[in-house]
Nucleic acid binder design. Structure first.
Lengths: 226, 226
DNA sequence: ATCCTCAATAATGTCGACAATTCGGTGTTG
DNA sequence: CAACACCGAATTGTCGACATTATTGAGGAT
């Protein structure tokens, strides 16, 4: 029989809401009225409540006493801070990954890099960007450091909003590809210093692009999702 | 009368429970039955439930569907991982702190170092250890990087269990004091590289001490709840 | 004795009702 | 006309009741 695990509606609500927020379905600063969300997701208010508490702790929504929840708006400053932390931690993970990447890890990473190159040659910036996350995640897996992986994953979901805009920068994909290739080479050579340096450089570029995107949006006072 | 904001019992329960866990009042792996906790803290079950969800997200308790909550037992491996992350992030904070420490920051840090030295001279290891956290926190404040500070603070609360045992290592306090002094000197000189290096070295020592403590407790195969 | 079945119990998951609070508007008063 | 107290709708906070699920222990069959 269809074992749909009816129990734990809370988990369900949490995932749906989280997905809704990170995918931009709910806008930053949008109010999340418990009742509305509840019947939108076809779950009870209790479940929504639990989900909101979780998301508050996670930093994706803010929860004010007696005043409800809203999607947390990450300030520009905070977005940069998050990216800085992410860079620091991912550099550490890259170092570890270089020390212990298995042949299987390297095979998979090579496959990804090849696919990325194809996307760049086809000038498919969006397709390229979609391969970005899996590539990084595979490195986290190779680093075998669950605590940090969890942390970095959580950070990433908080700063999604600006992630999209970084795709648009002209010439960014080519450069990004070269950086990814450098990281891969360092991992393949099992050279921790090189891997850490390459990852640090890559994320410094991302950070710079982020600054560029933030500058840009100040000129263009519209940044709502299309 | 004396309306102490009766609303928000959830916050209250959260703080009490958190305090109880980090202070060791509740032991690792101990089951947290909602009803018991509720009337122990004189709050409703709803509030306890919310608190547990928060603490689960925070990593201080584990929450299994239909099977309740228990105080999370941090494995040795995980404790080391946490300490590693903390080291990485605090090194970054020290770097930033060196760049932007104000005279007030430095005055305060000097005061703390002086007091630490006194404690060491009095051979008051426990008193010395109590000054440890404020010293680090002051550096975080100087770094002016709230995102990271929050993160590091959260990590620290997860690994409290082993923190105490590190005090016991012979000769540790003297060495720790010298490390702290080195960090202070680097901050005072506004030398980011030196500050980062000093902090990194300090926390590498802490990590080593942690490993030592973990080895030690393997000799004593008693860790079951009493 | 060991394993299995199955009721009894304890604890969690969910819901609906109601109290408490916030917020926007409305009418009153100076 | 502005400031202000106040009412009402909307929303959140809390509680108790009940359904659902795990766990325990006794009894029976092999």
């Amino acid at each position: 029989m269809a074992r749909t695990t009816v129990a734990e509606a809370g988990q369900h609500a949490y995932r749906r809401l989280r997905e809704g927020i990170t995918s931009g379905q709910f806008h930053p600063n949008e109010r999340l009225v418990e009742a509305s969300v509840a019947n939108r997701l076809s779950v009870g208010r209790t479940a929504v409540r639990a989900a909101l508490v979780r998301l508050d702790q996670e930093g994706l929504v803010t929860l004010e006493p007696n005043r409800g929840a809203r999607v947390r708006l990450i300030s520009d400053r905070e977005a940069l801070e998050i990216e800085e932390v992410r860079a620091t931690l991912e550099a550490m993970l890259a170092r570890r990954a270089a020390e212990r990447a298995t042949p299987a890890d390297l095979r998979e990473l090579r496959r990804m890099v090849v696919e990325m190159r194809q996307r760049v040659e086809e000038e498919d910036a969006f397709g390229y960007s979609a391969l970005n996350a899996p590539f990084h995640q595979r490195i986290w897996a190779a680093a075998d450091h669950p605590t940090t992986s969890r942390l970095v994953g959580s950070l990433k979901s908080q700063s999604i909003r600006l992630q999209y805009q970084t795709i648009l920068r002209p010439g960014r994909t080519e450069r990004s590809l070269r950086e990814h290739e450098a990281i891969f080479e360092a991992l393949k050579a099992h050279d921790p210093d090189a891997a850490e340096a390459a990852m640090r450089e890559h994320l410094a570029e991302v950070l710079a692009t982020l600054r560029w995107a933030i500058e840009g949006q100040h000129g263009t006072p519209r940044w709502l999702p299309g």
